[in-house]
């Protein structure tokens, strides 16, 4: 079953394109990554899904219901962590969390304390006295306190130290194990690599590609680095080679295709060193961005 279905979603702000023809289906229980540089349209897509803004054309279905018409119903089961956190400055953290909890039908008090303890959040401070990272922690607790079935994260890790990031990832993984679907938007690929099953790449408001994270890494590209003498003879310029960088003593490139062919080619050369690696997602995605 699909938890989220974007159908030809297009959003223009006047003449400015937010996103165009976005088509994504997200299955129940999966952790779906949403990758793109700043300004690519990630937040636009998310805000449309939450009916903070309305689509120019196309539709979004969440839990099988139209996201605009039944917005308040589907939001009962959505936990949202925005990229920048703004709350009522004068409120205490605990009052804000209890206020948020009052909008849901079931009692969330014990979950609030449980999450606050995991994230090491001081509940008695005022929002205005909190640092950026601490506000983010409040956001995490607020987004998860009602045990949502769909968790939407918009660049969630900014402001968190590495230790907190890890705790946060564990929390998300745990919620996912309990059955929650996760929509994870980020421009940091390593964290997507760590957490996600599938990933959509967005560029200039349009989806460039939707791929399986594992197969993307395993089956596709290999990163070759070759050392030796007088290697800049152009013989590596064959089908399947990209990002070719040739120098006198070192050549590096990505290769996608039959490895036997490449091994044969390497066998004809006298080399001092060879390195064959899995490329990082960053390296894989660079050519989508260019």
């Amino acid at each position: 079953m699909n938890v989220i279905e974007f159908k030809d979603l297009t959003k223009y702000y006047g003449n400015v394109k937010g996103c165009e023809n976005v088509n994504i289906n997200i299955k129940e229980g999966e952790i779906f990554g949403f990758i793109g540089p700043n300004g690519a349209g990630k937040s636009t897509t998310i805000r449309t899904m939450l009916s903070l803004i309305y689509p120019t054309s196309g539709s979004i279905t969440v839990f099988g219901k139209d996201a605009i018409e039944f917005g308040h119903e589907i939001r009962k089961d959505i936990g949202y962590l925005p990229s920048e956190i703004f709350y009522y400055d004068k409120m205490k953290v605990i009052d804000l969390l209890l206020y948020s909890a009052s909008f849901y039908d079931h009692d969330c008090t014990s979950k609030i304390y449980e999450l606050a303890e995991i994230m090491e959040l001081n509940l008695d401070r005022r929002i205005q006295d909190l640092s950026y990272g601490n506000k983010k922690k409040v956001g995490i607790v607020q987004g998860l306190l009602h045990s949502p079935k769909l968790i939407i994260l918009d660049e969630p890790t900014s402001g968190l130290d590495p230790l907190m990031q890890q705790k946060f990832f564990n929390l998300i993984a745990e919620e996912n194990k309990k059955g929650a679907t996760v929509f994870f938007s980020s421009h940091i690929l390593s964290e997507v690599q760590q957490l996600c099953d599938r990933v959509a790449i967005i560029k200039d408001g349009e989806i460039v590609s939707i791929e399986d994270v594992k197969s993307l890494q395993k089956d596709n590209y290999k990163k070759f680095t070759i050392c030796g003498d007088k290697l800049n003879h152009g013989r590596f310029n064959i089908d399947g080679v990209t990002e070719l960088k040739e120098a006198e003593n070192e050549v590096s490139f990505f290769y996608k295709g039959d490895v036997n062919l490449m091994v044969k080619l390497l066998g004809t050369l006298s080399l001092s060193n060879v390195l064959i690696e899995e490329p990082t997602l960053e390296e894989i995605f660079m050519h989508y961005y260019e």
Binding site: L52, F86, Y88
Partner: peptide, 16 residues
């Protein structure tokens, strides 16, 4: 105060 992104992602309608 930019709290709209908080308030309107709670399960309430704008009319409410």
């Amino acid at each position: 105060d930019r709290t709209a992104e908080y308030l309107f992602t709670l399960p309430v309608t704008r009319n409410q």
